[in-house]
Design a protein around this nucleic acid. Structure first.
Lengths: 332, 332
DNA sequence: CGTGTCCCTGACAACGTTGTCAAGGGAGTG
DNA sequence: CACTCCCTTGACAACGTTGTCAGGGACACG
């Protein structure tokens, strides 16, 4: 910037004014400065600018989630990025991998980089550490999973309602023995979906068989083997509700191996690509990760732009998509 | 940092030394400074540090790709991030969406943020603009697609070889009329895979029927409708080689609709989740996006750490995975 | 003509940090 | 004891930028 000022024959401050498109600079000088910028290939340094500015904006927000490689979060990430780019803001991401202590570690990195805000799909049960880890007034939005011990807007899918709807759907098709398969129950989404499932049963006056409620399936492979077990025991279920993507796929593999895929009904929580091309096509409760990302980003930017007020809750509705697997009836 | 120094009763510089774990600070002062840091909840400002440091490292690298929401690139992104995090480096991403001018626009943003390096899956045919857009000595690594007009290491899948192998595989199963369906031919990967396809035909002494070589399929839906057309014309192919993920899926949909999915052979370039659960399961030439991301990141960090030398080319091998769709024989 | 107002411009300090240099003090050496 | 050397510490400037303030010129008004 020094060089630009010298070449253009103006002061440093005038260059700064031109770069920031401030008013009240004579057109002649603007032209001179611009051509000097062109000539020298000058590019302003956002870091230095941030340091000096009074608002201290870095024009960066952080997005902490399970895994940017996971399709659900990758879609959410893309939606956040679209909103951010429209404002000239960069998104920096961190992968938590269901690993509690990494949450805190990454929050520290966010702070050192002075991000303007944070969107986070929590892993650990308590976020009160954010009070000391984050700078004051850094807004936080919790997405997909709620936060505890730290104030922030929340963007959640209607997990309970969706799971209840899935269960109701299976019951409406004549099922009485329905298994519920979910990820580890300490994960909020898993717990809520199981709750929704139980509510669905209760609604119909059915009592859950606890041997059919499995809550520690942390991988596709584990889900597959647990479903196989389920059907090697007496009195197996006639329908499955799988509370998450990877579990649904594990269950599909197991049913295939058992030759039961056209017999046992299945409704999965969370849609996935090609679900409609399987045989039978898989009925799901679809989430809308793009809407979740967009909503979270908008909520965050509103806070960054100065909105104050009590934490808001945004609910992103889920949709039942009938494709075949959920409409199979039990053998009479 | 000022406050920390005052509370600890030492100079600014000593705090700096402690924060950076420099040697030759007395243990007593280290302890004092650390407790003051604790007390005040002090967090160093990477931005200010970058500004003053002589090496000017921001500890950020940029990753420009088609779409972070696309599974192939999401996996690649994750692999890059793993390497980066091991070094305390942040990855910032940009979505190009096959849109040429955004490439340059995002490069400008990268420069303003002073990223230490750039990994990029090019969209436009020429990257010579980088010479003026980037700061001098910013290393660039091209991944998935080669760069032109600007020096940089390259990490590419064996596109030609893989496509030839696919074609050879179909020919070995008795096919003579094979269609090649690819994305727009100006995209390097699409062109290379078509070239590999043609090489495979030539190897077997077959002459390509140009009506069976389609090169402008930019979406799944378009691929689907073009395949439908293909089979409504006389003398349709007995096998398909689809040069990309989305096209493969479009083709599967079309074959389903025609009831030909168990008749017409299909080999797709690039693996995708659930390919093994379709009926028939889809034979593919699998790429290894994680290896590509990892290799690109390692190459970039080697440059950032001072390695000089002529641009290197890294080839990531593809693998033929036989699953059924590629082993169908033509009707006699 | 004097005064006030507005527009344009630049000098200067400051943001939070680290590189440079010099000074103080203690230990080791002749 | 004098001298050198190394370890420890701090003062100060500087990184690239912007906020603040003040000065100078043009113009309008009384």
């Amino acid at each position: 910037m020094n060089d630009v000022a010298r070449i253009a024959g103006v002061s440093l401050k005038t260059v700064s004014r031109v770069v920031n498109n401030e008013e009240n600079v004579s057109p002649v000088l603007v032209a001179q400065v611009r051509s000097a910028i062109e000539l020298l290939n000058y590019s302003p340094d956002i870091g230095a600018s941030t340091l000096r500015r009074s608002d201290r904006r870095t024009e960066m927000i952080a997005l902490l989630l399970k895994d940017v490689g996971n399709p659900f979060f990758a879609t959410l990430h893309r939606a956040v990025d679209d909103e951010a780019r429209a404002r000239g803001v960069q998104v920096i991401t961190g992968n938590l991998d269901e690993c509690s202590n990494r949450e805190r570690e990454l929050a520290r990195g966010i702070t050192m980089r002075r991000a303007d805000g944070l969107i986070m799909a929590t892993v650990s049960p308590d976020q009160s550490y954010l009070a000391s880890e984050l700078r004051v007034d850094t807004p936080v939005v919790f997405v997909d999973r709620p936060g505890h011990g730290f104030p922030g807007d929340t963007v959640l899918a209607t997990n309970v309602l969706g799971a209840t709807e899935a269960t109701r759907h299976l019951i409406a098709h004549g099922h009485r023995r329905i298994a519920c398969l979910s990820d580890h129950i300490r994960i909020p989404t898993a717990r809520l979906r199981r709750d929704g499932f139980l509510a669905g049963l209760q609604e119909a006056g059915l009592t859950p068989d606890e041997r059919l409620v499995v809550g520690d399936l942390s991988s596709e492979a584990l889900a597959e083997s647990r479903v196989l077990e389920l059907f090697h025991r007496p009195d197996p279920p006639t329908a499955l509700f799988t509370a998450q993507n990877a579990i649904t796929i594990g269950a599909v593999r197991a049913l295939r191996r058992l030759g039961l895929h056209r017999t046992v009904a299945l409704v999965g929580f969370d849609d996935f690509p090609l679900a409609d091309l399987l045989d039978p096509a898989i009925t799901v409760i679809a989430q809308d990760p793009a809407a979740m990302g967009r909503t979270a980003a908008l909520a965050l930017f509103r806070r960054i732009d100065g909105h104050t007020g009590p934490p808001a809750e945004h609910w992103i509705p889920t949709t039942l998509i009938r494709r075949g697997s959920g409409e199979l009836r039990p053998p009479d």
